[in-house]
Design a protein around this nucleic acid. Structure first.
Lengths: 325, 325
DNA sequence: CTGAAAGCGCTTACAG
DNA sequence: CTGAAAGCGCTTACAG
């Protein structure tokens, strides 16, 4: 309600608002007496500076906008966790908005954020380059996570999908697996495309590829399809953990033993993967998110800083769905 | 960078800033010609209103602060999903902050948010009433989720733990289970306490109770302890799903059949629960969060609105860990 | 229907 | 070391 303003503090301490501002911001040029009186007054009034006014005046909000696609589960929470960690550490706040549905949603969110944030972290693996370029003018400071193509208008950081896929394929080969069935993600998703391409390149002609939509169900469906067709394969590699879980379920239902008959691997390393002993690729999404936000804050602090592009290297995590205990 | 301001638009359209403001806010008292020129100018300049300045001027930010404890996984993402849904629907933005560690963190976050948000949604099942009352003066509009005790300074909404616990116990009884082992959550958590009390009341003297910390590991540990002691029980009820999963794992390792030998139930209904066919209590956290934010926005729109307290009724979800297929 | 002006709560040169 | 004043980008009575 009628929260105290800087004027109230100034009046109570019998000084100018300029002095109050100086004291509260820890500037040096204030006499000890003034400092003392201002601090006392501020305490008495329970004064809390109005961050909105402050940021208007300073043209700096110490807030960054986070635009994320409509995500579920652990992936999402890990992402936010990583950013929150870094935001806390560096004195920033996170203004959040989901990027559901159409790109008009995204534009609306962007408009609503102008003047409230200093920059943006945008994750948009499903947006094409043109849409992105249009919605995000270079004048807006932003760091992109897993954005498609070679966007050069903003810094970006992406998972190195190729390294991850190669590691899995090499691992399966070492185990002597001959024929790997691959369950890909939706083709509208850049990570799905990269993983699929990397797999095709690594596995060669023998590739047995099916497409899912990143859901548990689609993974199960794909496996059932393969089994029904009588396809021969001794390993399954799904483009994400959820589909790998579906595959696991489908194989179990069909009486196939894992990894005895068929080895299974996924991608992402969601917490659930460790619970189910799934061999997978650990993306380290929290760390990736932390880096993205850190990068953005660095750029905000130094506008002359050149844009950069980063690859986040994932690591293979071997568990019992490939090397059964 | 030098983004266009309302002045630039006014100059370009050759009208006053007042007229620009009127047009952009859709006020009626503007001539068609003026409206047209302003809209054209705004379009040409790619003008986006400065939301920060707007909210300072209107003393309304259309943003609500979300203070959540340090949470992992699905619970967290569902919570945010529910709020985001409602925020989107009602034209609000969400300013996010984790409430890690000490209460000083919380106060810092609160200070940082003043002047940027119109109100708060606070989830603090681990804070005691005194701390909460001190950190959250009645002058700050807020809705509490699962707050302890009878805070009457703010509206609140809580899961009806008793109803959930009773449903599970009744279900197990109906199945003929005689002795239910209960794995409780950390006593510092209000939900854990409520569930424990409800269980003790429903199960009576025969109660076999152990305490965990809501983690998978603690659930597994509790079960191992019980089995090692040679305790007799034919059902396990864990205060959350994660511990129930730990119990499942512990039972499996010990060669006990579920639900043949021992029925298992959890609480929360995280997505993982459905994947593993765990009987549990569906809290509907997204819906709860949605209601909380909706309530807050209602209050912001009508300051005279009396504070209210709500119970969110959870529902029993029966799956194969109690009634095996 | 339109504009000049005050005000939202701060910060920051500029004088002194 | 201190204060009066202008300014951040908007909105909104108040006159006309």
């Amino acid at each position: 309600m009628g929260a105290a303003t800087i004027r109230d503090v100034a009046a109570k301490a019998d000084v100018s608002v300029a002095s109050v501002s100086r004291v509260l911001n820890g500037l040096a040029n204030v006499s000890a007496g003034t400092r003392e009186r201002v601090e006392q007054a501020a305490r008495d009034l329970g004064y809390v500076p109005h961050a909105g006014a402050r940021s208007l005046s300073m043209a700096k909000s110490h807030t960054v906008g986070v635009l994320l696609p409509d995500m579920h589960g652990e992936f999402f929470s890990e992402l936010l966790r990583g950013m929150d960690l870094e935001a806390n550490r560096r004195g920033y706040l996170l203004l959040f908005s989901n990027l559901h549905a159409g790109s008009s949603q995204g534009e609306a969110a962007l408009r609503a954020m102008r003047g409230k944030v200093d920059g943006l972290v945008v994750m948009a693996p499903h947006l094409d380059e043109a849409t992105l370029a249009q919605a995000l003018p270079p004048s807006i400071r932003a760091v992109l996570i897993n954005a498609p193509g070679d966007v050069r208008s903003h810094s970006n950081i992406r998972v190195d999908n190729q390294v991850g896929v190669q590691a899995v394929v090499a691992h399966l080969r070492e185990l002597g697996r001959q024929r790997i069935a691959y369950i890909g993600g939706p083709s509208g998703n850049i990570d799905a495309r990269e993983r699929g391409a990397a797999f095709a390149a690594a596995a060669g002609d023998s590739a047995l590829m099916r497409e899912g939509d990143f859901s548990v169900e689609s993974g199960e469906l794909a496996i059932r399809g393969l089994l029904d067709e009588g396809a021969a394969f001794d390993a399954v590699f799904a483009a994400n953990d959820m589909m790998a879980l579906g595959a696991l379920r489908g194989l179990e239902a069909a009486g196939r033993r894992v990894p005895g008959d068929i080895a299974v691997a996924g991608f992402d390393d969601v917490p659930l993967a460790s619970y189910l002993h799934l061999t997978t690729v650990k993306v380290g999404i929290a760390e990736l998110a932390r880096r993205a936000l850190g990068l953005l804050i660095d750029e905000l602090g130094d506008p002359a800083r050149p844009l950069t592009a980063h690859r986040h290297t994932p690591t293979l995590v071997v568990r019992q769905t490939t090397v059964g205990s």
